[in-house]
Design a binder for these strands. Structure first.
Length: 703
RNA sequence: GGGCUCUUAGCUCAGUUGGUUAGAGCGCUUCGUUUACACCGAAGAGGUCAGAGGUUCGAAUCCUCUAGGGCCCACCA
């Protein structure tokens, strides 16, 4: 044995053996109770980052349960990640002087498909490097034919059940990228934006968007505002840049009398709040800005101008006519930006598919309240409820090509919509919706979609899954939707427990991001410290669900720990001539059998303490306390077993004590295996030359 | 504005249902090496647990307030 443990010599080799022997498959324990985790599917086009490395938690659970004899299934998959991926691809196109507008929908889709295919294997190989015992024979992809088919079916079922409607709703639309964004995808920024106090007949009202005034269909004041009582319900005559007009004054609670003048213009087609007000008062929608970002015919002489220019000219013309009371140039407010191109998002009315979330959300709240789904750490329950209780209908249409195209057809003559489970309706009059589904619509059904399409019987056996483990930042976008859609599709919860891990920041506590240039690639650290050390460092000393900063000293400590283990094994190996063949190292000794062989009181004591440790580790893993399990193992193995016990045995070693030493060390390796799979397996093989594998040996129980 | 979370040793962080002298890693000090490991061992220094008040026999832990940091959500015409 080498003096220093060299992870590079063993990791890839051991992983290959495990995989080739089929040890990652649940069939390895054919009679075991199923234990299932579905891997949150990484972006098929992406690369490994520390978020993925945190899935170590899942590997620990799977390896632990596999050793306990469960039919443990950890199912891998990848996500097409609609907007993300298309965005990356469009940047590639830009490099060669092209844009998506140079291709038709089918061609562009095929090009992105090919691009993703060439990169798809990358992320999987990287997950292997972390030692993840995923059942690769069951891997799925959100664009697999069978998955897509089921997604169509879900949409049709929801449509037939009246849960899906086509509505004209305001969407946050990027006129540059030509797509709308969900609430979750918008980035906000504080920006200076002059507040114009404009004259509306007898009133003065404040607006940051004078160019939308052509779309005004009312003026609103607070119904309790005594200043404006006489106008409520009246029509007032106003002077505008396009001539005289009449407009209704309404009273609405949403108007803040403190802001501006307490009177506000209502533009239902171009403002989210106004849209709601418009609905309450049955106001007409007048769209004056087109999807190209230009003013349309209703804007009179401003037609064809981009928003910015139109605003400038409208203000100038109003000033000339004396319609501007004054301007607050200091005004700062928050505006929604396109997270891709940073352009200001326009609220525009658009026909989209929406899911009525209320009935789904109510059930999703109930299952958590009733404890059918448990959330760890518990504090995230509040987030979950808060989100689901205030949910707006879910817009699932996306104006991008990279995704699952919505199986809805519009009749060219009648305008009627037909939803199918994938097939075009007969006849030539039907045109398919160009939009694709929001990525979360498919990934939100992931536990159902995967288990329905792996092998026959899988769904029955492995659904509902045991644990959904993921970063807390996608609680809303993903976890809550899986609960809603899972319940809808199967009448059962998709998973029994939700476990959140924190984010991994850079060594200075700053969030890792490409734009900041502080991204650390886990693969480099695996190379340098070993996969076991990287895994251990992420688990040790960090409470479940808390963010952590990457710590080189912790990585160092973890690597030294692997070396310590290796040298403990070396010591045992060096004394191997003491071994008596009548004492064979076995996997399933009872405590009694072992104690009967112990002669020295220190050996007896160590057997007892090791048993206690095994019980403690089992208890901690069952309550997802990985941190303390890791700490207990580290402390016991290093400072009790190595520093004290081995030193003690050294001076008095004989056949019996040597056997006890071997056996207890084996037990410790088993307990540590879920955390540090490679070095423990390597030692197992090296020390005892076994044909079988530690990873599928039985969990120590001393029963 | 609403919600969540954090503030513990020089640094990074643990501290499980409140219970004796508050722990770890790294760093620091002193000592140790004829073979398991210097990626080691032994010993040690270092904390008024952000501040104030309260509950309690007992508080880092529970409650209230204050200060500071972080995150999420909503709204801002």
């Amino acid at each position: 044995m080498d003096k220093v443990y060299d992870n590079k010599k063993t990791e890839a080799k051991i992983y290959k053996e495990w995989e080739e022997k089929g040890l990652f498959k649940p069939e390895i324990n054919p009679k075991g109770k199923p234990y299932t985790i579905i891997l949150p599917p990484p972006n098929a086009n992406g690369a490994l980052h520390f978020g993925h490395a945190m899935f170590t938690v899942e590997d620990i659970l799977i390896r632990y349960h596999r050793m306990r004899g469960h039919a443990a299934l950890w199912l891998p998959g990848t996500d097409h990640a609609g907007i993300e991926t298309q965005f990356v691809f469009e940047k590639k196109l830009k490099e060669i002087g092209k844009s998506r507008f140079d291709y038709d929908q089918e061609t562009l889709y095929q090009m992105i498909w090919d691009y993703v295919e060439t990169n798809k294997g990358g992320i999987e190989d990287q997950l292997r490097k972390l030692g993840f015992s995923l059942d690769w024979s069951r891997r799925k992809y959100t664009l697999d034919k069978d998955i897509v088919k089921l997604v169509y079916k879900t949409f049709k079922k929801m449509f037939d059940d009246g849960l899906i409607y086509r509505g004209q709703r305001l969407v946050n639309y990027c006129t540059f990228d030509g797509t709308s964004f969900s609430d979750l995808e918008i980035t906000y920024e504080e920006r200076n934006s002059p507040l114009y106090y404009i004259k509306y007949g007898p009133l003065v009202l404040a607006t940051t968007r004078p160019e939308t005034k052509f779309g005004d269909t009312a003026v609103a004041v607070n119904p309790k505002d005594i200043r404006y009582q006489q106008y409520i319900g009246q029509e007032i005559e106003i002077e505008t840049v396009l001539g005289r007009a009449r407009i209704k004054v309404i009273g609405d609670e949403s108007v803040d009398p403190e802001f501006g003048t307490g009177a506000v213009k209502i533009t239902p087609a171009h403002d989210f709040n106004d849209f709601e007000v418009g609905k309450r008062h049955n106001l007409e929608m007048k769209q004056v800005i087109g999807f190209d970002g230009k003013m349309n015919g209703l804007a009179g002489k401003y037609q064809g101008m981009y928003i910015k220019q139109a605003r400038k000219e409208v203000v100038q013309d109003m000033q000339k006519k004396g319609l501007i009371d004054h301007i607050d140039h200091e005004y700062v407010h928050r505006i929604g930006l396109c997270y891709k191109c940073k352009n200001v998002l326009e609220p525009l009315p658009m026909e989209q598919w929406f899911i009525k979330v209320k009935p789904l959300a109510e059930k999703a709240i109930k299952v958590v309240k009733k404890g059918k789904i448990k959330i760890y750490p518990k504090s995230f329950e509040a987030w979950y409820f808060n989100w689901l209780e205030n949910l707006r209908d879910w817009n699932i249409s996306r104006q991008i090509v990279w995704g699952i195209r919505i199986p809805a057809w519009k009749n060219k003559n009648t305008g009627e919509w037909k939803v199918t489970d994938g097939e075009a309706p007969p006849g030539n009059d039907w045109e398919q919706d160009k939009d694709t589904f929001d990525t979360w619509f498919s990934s939100g059904q992931w536990p159902y979609l995967t288990l329905q399409t792996t092998r026959s019987g899988d769904f029955k056996e492995f659904y509902p899954t045991d644990v959904m483990e993921t970063a807390y930042d996608i609680l809303r976008a993903w976890v809550s939707r899986m609960v809603m859609l899972g319940l809808y599709l199967t009448d059962e919860v998709p998973f029994k427990n939700v476990l959140f891990h924190g984010l991994v920041n850079d060594p200075y506590g700053k969030k890792m991001s490409k734009s900041k240039g502080n991204v650390i690639n886990p693969l480099e650290l695996i190379d340098q410290y070993g996969a076991d050390a990287v895994r251990f460092a992420l688990i040790y000393g960090n409470a479940t669900g808390n963010d952590q900063s990457l710590s080189y000293s912790k990585l160092d400590a973890a690597r030294k720990f692997t070396n310590k283990l290796w040298n403990m094994a070396r010591f045992i190996n060096m004394k191997r001539e003491i071994r008596n063949s009548k004492f064979e190292i076995r996997n399933n000794l009872t405590r009694k059998q072992l104690e009967d062989l112990a002669v020295h009181k220190n050996d007896k004591e160590m057997i007892e303490r090791t048993e206690k440790l095994a019980q403690e580790i089992t208890r901690l893993l069952d309550k997802y306390d990985f941190n303390h399990a890791a700490q207990n193992l580290y402390d016991f193995i290093w400072h009790e077993f190595a520093d004290k016990y081995i030193e003690d045995v050294k001076g008095r070693i004989d056949e019996n004590s040597y056997f006890i030493l071997n056996t207890l060390f084996l037990i410790l390796l088993k307990l540590l295996h879920p955390f540090m799979p490679f070095v423990t397996e390597d030692i197992y093989k090296t020390l005892w030359g076994k044909e079988d594998y530690l990873m599928v040996s039985n969990w120590p129980s001393f029963v």
